[in-house]
Amino acid sequence: MNSKLASRSIIVITLLFLIGPFGIIILAGLSAGDFMTFPPDGISLKWYAKVFEVKSFRASFALSMFLAIGGTIAALLLGIPAAYAISRYKIPFAETIKTIVAAPIIVPGIIVGLALLRYLVVPLNFTVTIALFLAHTALVLPYAVRVVSSSLNNLRSDMEEAAVLLGCSRVGAFIRVVLPNIRSGVLAAFILGFVTSFNQVPVSLFLSGPGVRTLPIDMLSYMEMTYDPSVAALSALLAFLSVAIVFIAEKFLGFSRYV
């Protein structure tokens, strides 16, 4: 009886820690006052409305969406063939390639950002947008390769041979037989990549330029200037967006199998 009570309270406390900040942010954004406070200073929706009026938020949201969607698609276009090659063919240095591909998540983001700034943007004169795009693609690539690899490993290769014997070319067999069967893995990789890219701060911090900022960076600098509850309101909206994405993914794909 006592241990049951103990385990229950541990669960409740854990959930409070996880969900509590979320509640605080939602409520802080509902404040009627001019400063971010908790408990909120009266109740109003004006800060939620203001989020949509701030120009820089709109621009940085658009950039973040572009990077998250575009970067993840680029990473998948590179990652799916890479994962296929690693899992199907005995290519030399396969383990080394896997390690190199995983490097962007092992090396701290700050270092990746600084390195990209110093060796990509400055000497090659890349624009900030291109540098951001390349950086986000590289950051998402490890997830694309890992998740797609694991669903490829669950797929027997004789299925492709069967398709070839029924008249498919090798590429045709990949499109008709392999892709449909790793579809949920690809979608899971997409969602994971999207979230990783969208929430990315340290790398983007180094690669922001005048007028070109991702949403998290923009929120940081907005808060340095103005301490009003609109950032809290925006955070709450983004959190709802993430919950919605994960909910849809779980419902349609059984997302949790892949993570």
């Binding site: 299925m159 041979e161 070839v164 029924l166 008249g167 008709r176 069967n181």
Partner: peptide
Amino acid sequence: PANKRGIGLVFQSYALFPHLNAFENVAFG
């Protein structure tokens, strides 16, 4: 190449296409 030989192979593991139903598996070729 294998896809031009007109040879059928029944694999030990059957190698059916899991995303297709029985009709579509047979219709594949």
